[in-house]
């Protein structure tokens, strides 16, 4: 396990963190939703109407977000709750919030020194696509395109160093 200082020093763009974010996401989906994510080589032009965000503050400042479509969000909630898809209701936002929270927490736990020095905010979930997100991030977002049950999801980390 590399330390946070080693990882900060190794790469100003933090590209080394992409595999860790991907691993953190894979573990959350495998353990909590019992399904495997696959890598999507190129981003699909699909409307991702649900955005779940968790802020990070401390040794690492930024925002980790999970974006997906409505059907993917409902299916995630269905799998987390263990109920049929048609019985999922307003729990989708709560479920997506927990997923972002667990991915962010699992990611920071993989970097020595970051876990205890970085706090997570409560999750915020936005539904819809007609918005602009302004953050203090000063480097390009680390973005991973994945497929969940054949549907695209995007996990990104915007860092404010």
């Amino acid at each position: 396990m590399k330390s946070v200082n080693e990882l900060f020093a190794a790469n100003d763009n933090h590209e080394d963190w992409i595999p860790l974010i991907e691993l953190a996401a894979r573990e959350v989906f495998e353990l909590m939703l019992n399904c495997r994510l696959t890598v999507l080589k190129t981003a699909e032009a699909t409307a991702l109407e649900i955005t779940s965000m968790v802020g990070l503050a401390g040794k690492l400042c930024g925002v980790l977000s999970v974006r997906c479509g409505r059907r993917a969000g409902a299916l995630m909630a269905s799998k987390m709750l263990g109920v049929p898809l048609e019985k999922v209701g307003p729990e989708v936002s709560d479920a997506l919030g927990e997923i972002a929270n667990m991915v962010a927490g699992n990611f920071k736990n993989k970097i020595s020194g970051l876990s205890e020095g970085c706090m997570l905010s409560p999750p915020t979930v936005i539904t819809g696509t007609d918005y602009d997100l302004h953050s203090r991030a000063d480097s390009p977002a680390l973005e991973i395109n994945l497929l969940f049950e054949g549907m695209p999801i995007v996990i990104s980390l915007q860092i404010n160093s």
């Binding site: 573990e27 959350v28 353990l31 909590m32 929270n101 667990m102 962010a104 927490g105 699992n106 920071k108 736990n109 876990s115 205890e116 997570l120």
Partner: peptide, 27 residues
């Protein structure tokens, strides 16, 4: 049962009286 996974958090929780510590995600 928490996303906070550092040893410092575990030690703090146990010293406060917790009897066990499970990290999210979990099986």
């Amino acid at each position: 049962i928490t996303t906070e996974g550092s040893e410092a958090h575990v030690v703090q929780a146990l010293s406060c009286g917790a009897r066990g510590y499970i990290r999210k995600p979990f099986t």
